[in-house]
Simulated scan of single mutants.
Amino acid sequence: MVTDAVRELVFVPGDGDRLAGYTPGAHVKLQLPVGERSYSLIDFEPVSENAGIGRYRFAVQLEAQSAGGSRFMHELASGDEVAVSPPGNDFPLQLNKPALLIAGGIGINPLISMATALKHEGTPFRFHYAGRTRAKMAYRDELEQAFGGELTLHFDDQPETALNIAGLAASVDADEHVYVCGPKGMIEAVKSAMGAAGIAADHIHFELFTSAAEESGDRSFEVEVHATGEVFTVPPGKTIIDVLEAGGVDLIHDCLRGDCGICRTDVIEGVPDHRDVVLSDSEKAEGKVMQICVSRAKSARLVLDL
Rank of each mutant, 00 (worst) to 15 (best):
I53N: 01
A146V: 11
I102K: 03
S113Q: 06
V225E: 05
G237D: 13
V34P: 00
F147L: 12
D141C: 10
P98D: 00
A117V: 11
L93A: 06
G131T: 10
G270H: 03
P236W: 01
T3W: 00
E81A: 15
M194C: 11
F44A: 09
F147N: 06
E230R: 13
L118W: 01
K97D: 00
G247Q: 04
D156F: 03
F147P: 05
C181I: 08
V84I: 15
L100Y: 01
H177P: 04
A200V: 04
V178I: 15
R219K: 15
E150R: 09
T133S: 09
R301S: 11
K184C: 07
D259T: 15
L153D: 07
I102S: 01
S220K: 04
I187V: 11
I102G: 00
F127R: 02
L95Y: 00
D242E: 07
G68W: 06
G131E: 00
A246H: 02
E160T: 13
E45C: 09
L62Q: 13
L163S: 09
A227C: 06
R71L: 15
Q31N: 13
M290D: 08
H203S: 04
V225Y: 00
E215M: 15
D157E: 12
T116Q: 05
C181R: 01
A20E: 14
L151K: 06
S280G: 07
S113P: 02
D157A: 12
V10D: 05
A103F: 03
L279S: 08
F91K: 08
G16P: 02
L41Y: 01
E283R: 10
V34R: 08
N96S: 11
T265N: 05
V271E: 11
A285G: 05
K191A: 11
C255F: 06
I241R: 02
A200T: 06
T233M: 14
L118D: 02
H154L: 14
P272L: 14
D276A: 08
F155E: 08
N89R: 02
G52N: 07
E150C: 12
E142R: 15
G258V: 12
V289E: 10
I165C: 03
A212G: 14
R140I: 14
A174L: 05
C263T: 12
A130Q: 11
N164P: 01
R57E: 07
V2P: 02
V289D: 07
